[in-house]
């Protein structure tokens, strides 16, 4: 276990993980849920959070600390995390028989858990970035990262599909570029200042595997346990001792407008019989075009055929004019993804 001097100024990236039994067994007779710990692992969102943390720490040449709240059976998973080179701390939470009391209090209290996470991080210094899975370390509500951002006085950007460190030298200090989903496949791009708390979906990245040397060393690693305290001294001074000192304030959002697909108005079927109306609405008895094989054709012809079909059936006015994409926030290098 690495002991980190709180005064060191190397960037600190934290992955805050919800390690849980992904395969609990439900007794069909009683409804009782058994978590035996055999199915314990990282959800796709948490695996993505950890991978993002590792990548950003590499980009910043910083350290990674993983904090997880959970019962003792999550320790084998934390060993795998140690094998990836991260320092690890566990907040007892959930089913630990010996950790009742405060652990039980935290179970339904996102704010309390956020305070406990913030307190557990104090020995490591002030985090520059905390990445969570979008099902956060509480009971998966996703609300914990917001509380944590409040505790740390950090910016927040939640539910992201992409998160990268912005290339150095383009702005005054290190920032992050994040992407979030909008309607109809559009995404908005955010410039996120640090310190920040981000939560990510399980998309876009796959967690790397630990090298053999790391796995060998992790076998005997001691997993530190942080008391489930609810007091914190990170305070609300906006993370003044942060690595970058670029208190640029809030998340910057590029100008966006949502794309709304056109609604197609259909007259109500005129029949006194509700069954007939229902059949007419669902089109259950209407003859449909059989599947048409138009290939093999080039991509352009295929696109024309598809659009032609949509126009023929009233989903599009032809010839279609797609809406302009949202204007991205000004100085972003699109190659940096």
């Amino acid at each position: 276990m690495t002991t980190v001097d709180a005064t060191t100024r190397s960037p600190l990236v934290v992955a805050c993980l919800r390690i849980t039994d992904l395969h609990p067994e439900v007794d069909l007779l009683t409804g009782a849920v058994t978590r035996d710990g055999l199915g314990v692992g990282l959800s796709p969102a948490d695996a993505a959070a950890l991978e993002h943390a590792l990548r950003i720490a590499e980009a910043w040449t910083g350290r990674v600390v993983v904090v997880a709240a959970g019962p003792r059976y999550i320790v084998p998973v934390l060993r795998e995390v140690v094998a990836l080179g991260a320092a690890v701390v566990r907040i007892p939470y959930g089913d630990d028989a010996s950790d009742h009391g405060q652990a039980a209090e935290l179970a339904g209290d996102e704010h309390g858990l956020a305070r406990a996470v913030a307190a557990a991080l104090i020995p490591f210094g002030t985090p520059d970035l905390v990445v969570c899975g979008d099902h956060s370390v509480d009971r998966g509500t996703g609300a914990m990262p917001a509380f944590l951002a409040h505790e740390l006085g950090a910016a927040q950007a939640l539910g992201l599909v992409a998160l990268t460190a912005e290339r150095a030298g383009q702005t005054s200090g290190p920032t992050l570029i994040a992407e979030r989903r909008l309607d109809a496949g559009w995404r908005e791009r955010l410039r996120v200042p640090i310190p920040a708390v981000c939560s990510v979906e399980g998309a876009g990245v796959r967690l790397r595997r630990a090298p053999l040397s790391g796995a060998l060393a992790a076998g005997s690693a001691v997993i530190a346990s942080a008391p489930a305290t609810t007091t914190t001294t990170h305070g609300t001074d906006g993370g003044a001792d942060s690595w970058a000192d670029n208190q640029s304030g809030s998340v910057h959002i590029g100008a966006t407008r949502a794309f709304e697909p056109r609604t197609r108005v259909r007259p109500a079927p005129d029949s006194a019989d509700p069954r007939i109306r229902l059949l007419a609405l669902t089109g259950a008895l209407v003859a449909h075009d059989p599947p048409t094989v138009i290939g093999p054709v080039g991509a352009a012809e295929a696109a024309d055929a598809l659009i032609g079909f949509l126009v023929r059936h009233g989903y599009l006015d032809g010839p279609p004019t797609p809406p302009a994409p949202p204007t991205p926030p000004a100085p972003i290098d699109p190659g940096d993804r």
Binding site: P76, E80, A215, S220
Partner: peptide, 12 residues
């Protein structure tokens, strides 16, 4: 085995 001093590497 691990208590006796063997090392165990899983997921490999």
């Amino acid at each position: 085995a691990t208590e006796a001093g063997a090392q165990l590497v899983t997921s490999t």
